[in-house]
Design a protein around this nucleic acid. Structure first.
Ligand code: SF4
Ligand code: SF4
Lengths: 145, 145
DNA sequence: ATATTTGCAGACAAAATACTCTTAATTCTT
DNA sequence: AAGAATTAAGAGTATTTTGTCTGCAAATAT
């Protein structure tokens, strides 16, 4: 079950790492994060670039540069992150993956899927990045072999 | 959002089609289904082969051959179909896609994901193929351009 | 028996996704 | 001003998923 693509996963892990280690205003060095989280540096860089372009992060080049939040983790919803990482239509697409259909001519699964989808959407909309971090004391975002 | 892979989607659409058109014991011709549902014949064939191998369908070769159910649509759960189509570990994997972690060293999202996952699993376990068909009168499994 | 219809199996091709590398632009340090 | 550190951008490669093709095996019909 790949609700979230690999790159989306990496993005979320990085953001969660940042939210968990937020010792004030500092920028997070991407190289350090990629080492820490065992993600390819260049790949992570590209993913975070997108988040910067979408206005979720800000970036700074040069020595001690890095990426940082623009809003506080409390103000960032999981839904907006997922939309940024996976595409704006994330919650609009059929969960089955079928394009272009809806209420007008629903397939036998439609009512069923809509229920599941709306639940998921509601949960994502009402969950902040900060909320996610509260669920555990461990900041275990690395892979566990 | 690709909860279910393309091939899984094709498999489900075919099964739903079969469940909806079950005029007694007959076998469904794969070519007819692939035409009807706009799925590549060979690809669909391969997907249904797997379902046959996993004991969800039975097949018959030769003239008027095809594939058919072994159990009634009421007895087939969505969960077992998804497990057959997407892999037995479908409900065990991290929704995020991370391998090999669990309660022992949960990441900040763990509790959150487990809740969503268990809900989904429960729904899938208690929903039969027949239930899915009941959700609408239209048997609209084709793409809607 | 032989030919026809069907599913089975595996090799092959194309497309999407994931990952790597090289170069440029920006900021800091001295 | 020069050089080092760091992200940005985009080309290039690898892997996975999706889809196609070709021939074989089983069942039927004549
Ligand atoms: S009608 Fe069926 S295929 Fe279309 S959006 Fe609804 S669930 Fe998806
Ligand atoms: S700890 Fe995090 S990464 Fe691991 S299974 Fe739970 S949610 Fe997934």
């Amino acid at each position: 079950m790949r609700v979230i693509s690999k790159s989306g996963e990496y993005g979320l892990r990085a953001l969660l790492h940042m939210a968990s280690n937020q010792d004030n205003e500092r920028f997070f060095n991407i190289r350090e994060m990629s080492d820490e989280l065992d993600i390819s540096f260049h790949f992570l860089t590209k993913i975070l670039q997108v988040l910067t372009q979408k206005g979720i992060l800000q970036s700074y080049r040069g020595p001690n540069g890095g990426v940082g939040f623009l809003k506080s983790a409390e103000e960032i919803t999981l839904a907006e992150l997922v939309r940024a990482l996976e595409g704006d239509d994330f919650f609009d697409k059929c969960l089955l993956g079928l394009p272009g259909c809806g209420e007008r001519q629903p397939c036998p699964m439609h009512a069923y899927w809509m229920g599941i989808r709306n639940n998921l959407k509601d949960e994502f909309e009402t969950t902040s990045l900060a909320d996610l971090g509260k669920n555990t004391r461990l900041q275990h975002l690395r892979l566990i072999a």
